[in-house]
Simulated scan of single mutants.
Amino acid sequence: MNDVRPAPALSVLDLVPVRTGQSSAQALESSMTLVRRADALGLTRYWFAEHHNMPAVAASTPPVMIAAAAARTERIRVGSGGVMLPNHAPLVVAEQFAALEALAPGRIDLGIGRAPGSDPVVTALLRSSGPTSDVDRFPEHLRNILALMAPDGARLRLTDGQTYDVNATPAATTTPTLWLLGSSDYSARLAAELGLPYVFANHFSGAGIDQVLALYRDGYRPSETHPRPRTFLTLNAVVAPTAEEAHERALPQLRAMARLRTGRPMGTAETVEEALAAPLDGLGEQMVEDMRSRWLVGTPDEARAEVARLAARHGVDEVMIVPVAGSYASEPLDATPGRVQTLELLAG
């Protein structure tokens, strides 16, 4: 009897990194090149994150980038990883993704998260026109988005007893797939209660993954569109022909995460040469090594084996790669060869 599991499907989460000397336009162009390559390699989906006011991250408006990526690709699913719902009115989110689904039917994923995606000042600016998606009403707003995007839309009951029909788009024939993102008991329990697919944000925090996934699967309530639980995990990855190159290309992002977690000023992503030339202090170096041990950093054979091991251990048939490979100073500003290389070598 053959007990060998098939290789897990591969997908991509893109934060659209911005490195030293690179403009926003060049960073976005490099991501468009990457999504085209992911499409050609046969990867399953390509998601854009939502982060605000970060010098090293150009992923602030997932719907805009999804539209651009969908227009440049043929078959890969494109989506958000995720829309941070507390920053947005549910109707606006539903309308944006219903329009994207109409432009690329059957290819749109709406990944939704509960975190703000920025600091308190920017969060306040995002909500300056009034309350949007109150965190305490997160489950209600998820249900509203699902209803608004459905072909029949949602029916509101007004204070005078009348009803009012609302549709995110006039004549939907297909709807985006809604995924709930998270790394906590709360998100896993809510996804299970609503019968939604769930993504564990392992690239951000791998703590408690087995417990969280067990909560999701054990508590899952089948829904009409998702009769069975469905989940995958994310993973920071740098793959190169040699271990030395992989470790060098991982260093800029490792150092950036260490600065973030120790409250140090953030700038654009360093080149590999800059990262090698400016060592962190003892605390930072220890943090870098701790994170490196949880990332996928190595040669193609090692990396593919580790992806398969992780997928088998956690019972998932898909792994979403966050390609965090840095660039050497000599590499073009409108491309990210290290990130392209990571996907190509993993895809085999």
Rank of each mutant, 00 (worst) to 15 (best):
L181Q: 02
P8K: 04
R264D: 01
L190S: 04
R137G: 12
E140L: 13
A59N: 03
R249H: 06
P265L: 09
V135Q: 13
G263R: 15
P120K: 01
N144D: 14
L103E: 12
W47N: 03
A269Q: 11
A214Q: 08
N167K: 15
I321F: 00
N167L: 15
G298H: 01
T73K: 03
V316H: 02
A115F: 04
L333R: 08
Q286E: 12
A25C: 12
A154L: 12
V92W: 12
A102S: 15
G161H: 10
E274L: 02
P55Y: 13
D134R: 15
P279W: 06
W179I: 06
E245K: 02
A94C: 12
G208S: 06
T268D: 03
P176G: 09
P86V: 08
H51P: 02
P116V: 04
R217Q: 13
V239P: 00
S24A: 15
T123F: 15
E331P: 13
V16H: 07
L215I: 12
A58T: 07
V57A: 01
L148R: 04
T61R: 05
L180D: 07
R189P: 00
L276T: 10
P227G: 06
S129R: 14
V212M: 05
D14M: 06
S184F: 01
P8Q: 06
E318M: 01
L333T: 04
S327A: 15
L296Q: 02
A71Q: 08
D152M: 14
A246W: 08
G315N: 08
L283S: 10
A40V: 14
V319I: 08
I209T: 11
R261M: 12
Y220I: 07
S80D: 07
D185V: 11
